[in-house]
Simulated assay, not measured.
Amino acid sequence: MTDYLKLVPVNVTPRGAVVGVGCAVEVDGLTVEVPRPFVMIDGRLAVGPVIEAADGSVKLRLDLWNPMWLTAQGSRVLPLSVRGQGRAVAAARAFDADPEIDWTSPDEDVLAWCHRWVARGTGGDQS
């Protein structure tokens, strides 16, 4: 039996809102906007593979994952690339549970939180 991973480009909230997030990638001087695929963890937390340009193509990195937040009110991808889905899930849950930070916090506060998470030796690579 082979393993199976289903990545989706959108999530439908309990109230029927369709939520997704895009990603701009520069490929050979051309900015390409692509839908960012992800795996939902719960009703609003998700993880998605890192997306990058490589050899004139857009590449999904299944070895590196980004924690994500998707709601009808907004979405955010943490500026954190983590080796393995499990660690990305742990980062998303840790961020969500931290009373000192919020998914709508300013970029510099979110980046500082990510640096602290990596410094604690939790397995992330800053991106």
Rank of each mutant, 00 (worst) to 15 (best):
W117T: 01
I101L: 04
V12M: 07
G56H: 14
D109W: 02
R76T: 08
V32I: 10
V58A: 07
A97H: 04
V25A: 04
R116E: 05
G43L: 12
E108A: 13
E100P: 00
V89F: 05
P35Y: 07
V18C: 14
V47M: 03
W103V: 05
I101P: 00
L7G: 02
M40T: 13
I41Q: 05
D107H: 06
F38W: 06
G124S: 07
D96M: 10
G20L: 01
T104L: 09
R36H: 10
G74H: 02
N66M: 08
A88V: 09
D3K: 15
A119S: 12
R120P: 10
V10P: 06
V34T: 03
D102I: 04
I51C: 09
P99L: 05
L45G: 06
Y4Q: 15
G29F: 07
P14D: 13
E26I: 07
M40L: 15
A112G: 00
V47W: 02
L45N: 05
G22A: 03
V50G: 06
R15Y: 12
D96V: 03
W65E: 06
P79D: 02
L111G: 00
V34W: 09
W113G: 06
A53C: 11
V58Y: 04
A17T: 02
A97C: 04
L45I: 11
G29M: 08
N66D: 14
R76N: 05
N11G: 15
G29W: 03
D98R: 12
L80M: 10
V32K: 07
A54D: 11
G124Q: 05
S81P: 01
W69N: 01
R76D: 01
W117R: 04
G74N: 03
L78T: 00
Q126N: 11
P67C: 04
C114D: 01
M40E: 10
L45S: 12
E52L: 13
Q126L: 15
S81D: 09
L30C: 12
L78Q: 02
T122I: 05
V21A: 14
K6F: 04
P14C: 15
G22H: 02
A90H: 03
P37G: 03
D107W: 03
W113D: 02
I101F: 10
D28W: 05
G121W: 04
V110S: 00
G74K: 06
V19D: 03
V32E: 12
C114N: 00
V77R: 07
P106Y: 05
A24T: 09
E33R: 03
F95M: 08
R116I: 07
W103Y: 00
L78D: 07
P79A: 09
K59N: 14
V27A: 11
A90K: 05
T122G: 12
G48R: 10
L111I: 12
R120S: 10
W65C: 00
G16A: 06
I101W: 08
D3T: 15
F38K: 14
G84I: 04
P35Q: 12
T122M: 13
R87E: 05
S127T: 09
M40C: 14
F95N: 02
V47G: 04
P35R: 00
V25T: 01
A119C: 01
F95T: 09
V18A: 11
